[in-house]
Nucleic acid binder design. Sequence first.
DNA 1: GACCAGATTGTCT
DNA 2: GACAATCTGGTCA
Length: 197
Amino acid sequence: MILNRKFYAQNAQIVAKKLLGTFLVHETPAGKLVGQIVETEAYLSSNDPASHSYKGQTLRNQAMFLEGGHIYIYFSYGFHYLLNVVTGKESVGEAVLIRAIEPVAGINLMQNNRQMEKISNLTNGPGKLVQALNIGNDLYGQSFISSPLKIYSADSFPELFRNRKFEVVTTTRIGISKGNNLNLRFYIMNNPFVSKS
DNA sequence: GACCAGATTGTCT
DNA sequence: GACAATCTGGTCA
């Protein structure tokens, strides 16, 4: 089943951890693209210097201040879009960055979107999975409940759930220069699609 | 209006 | 392992 507003209303740390093992589904005209979430990072509000919401609301990050369950897409380094799940109540400014997924269905389409045959290099990074799932900025500010992009609970596709039992590793976030002493990164232990460095 | 840093990736050595 | 590619918001003049 689709994760509901009650789920997204929890703290970013809790949502980040609970999102591991769930299914990110994008229904496109070309077909259904499905990936299992294996790595996330939580970004908090005014108490987290690495978060976009740290310095308050701007035109760019306003979606981050919407009610939990909305989609916040961030254009980074002039190249890549990064996909975030907004959490908590409205105007809080917390979100979870989806860093990596494991391809489950629509793999041919992902390979086509990425111009990449190697499955192990398809979705093992935040910019990569956005490209593989053909996620665009048109989803900015929409919600995971009503848009073509949805998240299903881990028990939604038992036939596809290869990692039924897994251990969660909690560690520090990567790729940032501030606030990197906080243990806000979560990933599934020994999963080959977790981004490394 | 100029300058800089940034939640990254692909390519080359 | 180093580095370039390329855009956006923030800061300061």
